[in-house]
Amino acid sequence: MKNLKIVSLYLLALLAFGFSSCKSEDPEKENDGEVITDVTLKFQELNESNALIGDILSFKASDPQGIEVGKTPAVQSISLTKGKKYQMTIEVSNSIEGEDITQEILEEAEKHQFFFLGQVFDSSFFTIQYADGDGIGLGLKNIVTVSSSTGTNNSSMRVVLRHDLDKKVSGTNPNFSNFVQAGGETDLDITFPVILN
């Protein structure tokens, strides 16, 4: 009987320990480093000998809250001149955490690829080719040629960033509209209005 009492005392102590140690931690704020809040397309004119001239034109799409219910992103219109050739670079960042995601994409060039679609290409207003160098089909740097004869001044361009895709399938065609067939998932899908002067 005495043993039983000791055993039950131990048991009680164990239980008290078990129940009191079972307490949740205080929540900590997470740094949502991967969220993309800002995408900037930068255009600079190229002359006949492919040298950069003139000012840089920046057009931005931003969603300061990241992915959150009830907020829609603000997308600026791209305004370019007919018949000109531009170098287009893309900058991607997270303004919430102050992170530059462009560099991450560049480091993982094998796993990422931008695709450029929409009416500007369907109607042949734009032609585009990757110009990242080394023949990598990535799309952070491109050459865009605007047709000199477009029927309308208003159009649109869809910019898609895919992640974890099979680049053997997608190849180096920036206009590859069947990008889903290369697998992977979408990180960005933004349609910019385009104004042609």
Binding site: K23, S24, E25, E30, D32
Partner: peptide, 21 residues
């Protein structure tokens, strides 16, 4: 029944469910 749920910090993603007791 007593239960404690904690999100282990450092995921870099806002947790789907809160910490709770």
């Amino acid at each position: 029944i007593q239960q404690a749920n904690s999100n282990v910090p450092g995921t870099g993603v806002t947790p789907l469910i809160p910490n709770y007791d």
